[in-house]
Computed example of a mutant assay.
Amino acid sequence: MHLFGRYRVKTVLDVGANVGQFAKRMIAAGYPDRIISFEPVSSSHSMLLKNAEGYDQWQVARRCALGGERRKVMVNIAGNSESSSLLPMLERHVSALPISKYLGAEETELIRLDDVLEEFLPAEKGASLALKMDVQGFEGEVLDGAPRTLKQIKVIYTEMSLCPLYDREVPFFDLYSRILKLGFRCVGISPGFLDPTTWEVLQVDATFVAEQTNSK
């Protein structure tokens, strides 16, 4: 909330919304402006729509995943829903959280964030945006589809894996370095997913801000 106010963020792109946990926390904390949520799993998307009812500033996009191109893809559905991903899950993830094991898969549309921006914010080019990513290893693909959108993004809040949990996911240091090269700096990292047996931190939540943004 402090960073959104500091960088004058008027729209939050909630990518990988699941059932809307992040958006609900932001609204409860007092965020008054626009939130656009994206979710590819049909059961989670249906619950997301219900949770967004009654909130004028909270929009839910049609069911889709975000990536670097437009095409049809299969999304793997995890037993706990939050761990669902377009990527195959590795044994390290399952061993730390057995309930996350995939139960099946379904087809969804993959679209680019740049195309979404033109669809949802055609009259707000230049407005300050925040990007939240909880996409289970697909962060690099989301960034691939957002070269124009990134010019407006002032805050990035993303999940990052410290060890491989999904096949072909971008490793922590590679993703961290890429976001820095895009003109952001890291202002915070907090533990996310812990192995309950070994207490190893497997994923963290990292916050980045636009390096060149002139803020006070």
Rank of each mutant, 00 (worst) to 15 (best):
Y176S: 00
V41H: 00
A130E: 03
G68F: 08
Y102C: 06
T213S: 15
L48W: 01
A78C: 08
F22G: 05
K24Y: 10
G126Y: 04
V75C: 10
F208K: 00
L117Q: 04
Q152P: 06
K181E: 10
E107L: 05
L87N: 07
G188K: 09
L48D: 04
V155H: 00
E69N: 13
R92H: 07
T213R: 10
R70H: 06
E39K: 04
G192N: 14
I36A: 01
K216L: 15
F208W: 09
L103I: 12
L180K: 12
L110P: 06
G188L: 11
L202A: 09
E141L: 12
P40C: 03
A96C: 03
E69G: 05
V187R: 05
F4M: 12
V209P: 06
G54W: 02
G68A: 10
E124W: 08
D144Q: 13
C163D: 06
K72E: 15
P191H: 08
A96I: 12
M47L: 15
T108Q: 05
F138M: 14
F4L: 13
E139Y: 09
Y157C: 09
R8H: 14
S161C: 11
A23S: 13
A105P: 08
K50L: 13
S44W: 01
C186T: 09
I35E: 02
K10P: 00
L113T: 01
G126P: 03
S190M: 09
L113W: 05
A210V: 07
E53V: 07
V19E: 05
S95F: 10
V75A: 09
F38L: 07
G5A: 06
G137C: 13
M1Q: 13
I27W: 01
N18K: 09
L90K: 14
N214Q: 14
E91T: 14
N76R: 15
T213L: 06
A210C: 11
I153Q: 09
T149Q: 01
C186A: 15
R70V: 14
S43V: 13
S100A: 15
E39W: 04
L194E: 04
V201Y: 08
L143C: 04
Y7P: 01
E109D: 12
V170Y: 06
L182R: 09
A96N: 03
D56L: 13
A96K: 07
G67T: 14
S100Y: 11
F4H: 13
L117T: 03
V12K: 09
A210Y: 03
L13A: 10
T213M: 15
G104H: 05
G188R: 05
Y176P: 02
D205W: 01
D14T: 04
G126T: 04
S177Y: 10
A123L: 10
H93M: 12
G20R: 06
D134S: 02
L180N: 13
L143I: 13
E82Q: 11
K72S: 15
H45M: 11
A210M: 11
S46D: 06
A105D: 07
G137V: 09
M1H: 12
E82K: 12
